[in-house]
Amino acid sequence: MKKGSAMNATLADFAFERTLKPRQEVSLSSFSFLFSEIVQQLMKSEKAASYHAHSGALTDPMLQSAGSGTCHLNNDLEHQLYQLGIPIGEKLLELLFYREKGGQGGACSSGKRETKLVSMLHLINGSVFKALFGRPADGLEQSIEDEDEYRILDRSPITNKFANLGKNSQLGQTNCAAFIAGLIEGMLCSAKLYAKVTAHLYGDEEAGAGGDAQATAEGEGAETPAGAGAGATSTTIYVIKFAKEVAVRERAGQ
């Protein structure tokens, strides 16, 4: 938007300014309160559902996804957060591209849409995380055992900043970063790179020790300034498992 056009700005210009210009930063507190309320609402509805029907219909999607072997979720709450994230991710990717067209220093420097798997992952790892959280993610790597699987390391997910269950809780380990996992999945799927993204708390991870050990080695070198005590428990790995057809297409394209 040039300064001259501000004088006779149309409604369309106004709408463009309002929605497509990169926003100012949102207060962390506002986000945290809103997110906290979302989680509590989900927990309440979950409780109500399990009260009304013990074998509840609500648990079905979780069982299905667990059965497919691509996703293991600790509980229903994580699944619901993940479901919430997906539509946001789908819209977010589109929005970031449109903002880029506005030329306001948006998500991707070139302004083109990413179609390649690796460049898309780099975009998420760098620019998208920057646009969302003000900093890039803490690492992107390919899994050693499975080349269709990638991992993004996030040392302090914004959703886990204040979330803490305390010592003796019945909920066990719940990771609110499932929401961000859903967001990433939404973004990838809207770019037709179908994938299943799951959030795992770092530390209680036994499987895939090779890749994880590598991640810690890198991390200790970097030494984040954020509180060490808080970071240690909330470090999250987003495991991105691409669908077979995506992998096949990717290899054919090379």
């Binding site: 309160f33 906290s36 803490n164 269950l165 010592k167």
Partner: peptide, 14 residues
């Protein structure tokens, strides 16, 4: 801001 803190319940957050 802790999503798992129930209102008016003892504080257990680490």
């Amino acid at each position: 801001k802790n999503p798992f803190q129930e209102a008016e319940m003892p504080i257990r957050s680490d």
